[in-house]
Amino acid sequence: MRRRPGIGGLQKAAAARDQYRLLGENVAKLRTDMMKEQLATFRSQLEEFARKHKNDIRKNPAFRAQFHEMCAKIGVDPLASNKGFWAELLGIGDFYYELGVQIIEVCMLTRSHNGGLISLQELCNHLRQRRKKDREAVTEDDCLRAISKLKVLGSGFEVITIGKKKLVRSVPTELNKDHNQILELAQGQGFVTVEEVQRRLSWTSGRVTDALETLLEEGLAMIDNGHKDGKCRYWFPCVSSVYSSIGSDP
């Protein structure tokens, strides 16, 4: 076709370009929509298979490997056992083990912003979201049971009660870096208050209290209740003395 000169031709070309672009966008959108839909089907099918044919899948090692690969690639959690009658009654079966693994996972993923201390309620919410296909929701009692199965692995993972709230602690004292931050904070004045730590490190009060309590137990902190402003002060004699002695060095 010959190109037509003049303003009319230019306008026409521009209009055609616009139309192509529009079409392109539509196709692109359609494509992503289709893919999302197919992905959703793929996922729900995999989840269903993981639940229904679990034992058959486990019997065939070669297929199991492929099944896992599929699950991992499109983000399906292959751990999806129903609670079932026996699990409910006797606490046996895979359900509580699976839940245990998922609980640790939630704790680890949220650790960067809660320091390994999560309220039982929040934990439950995370788990329910993860298992939304499941007909029966995960209860707090299920979580407690699952956590109690982890006892064998040492006392690092435990449920503690602060006030009325139940919290799950996933970082053992020996590996808790929160304490270091408090110590660093205490280097300034030699003491800290709950409010100060909360404000300076933007932690929740539960996290602060737990860390300070542990430091008290470890004999690193001393408590001072008698101050005028009525706020409880946690003194760190060891930290401050070394700080001042190093500071006074020539």
Binding site: R58, R64, H68, K151, V152
Partner: peptide, 8 residues
């Protein structure tokens, strides 16, 4: 994957 082991 699906081959869970128990804590024990």
């Amino acid at each position: 994957g699906t081959e869970l082991i128990s804590p024990d």
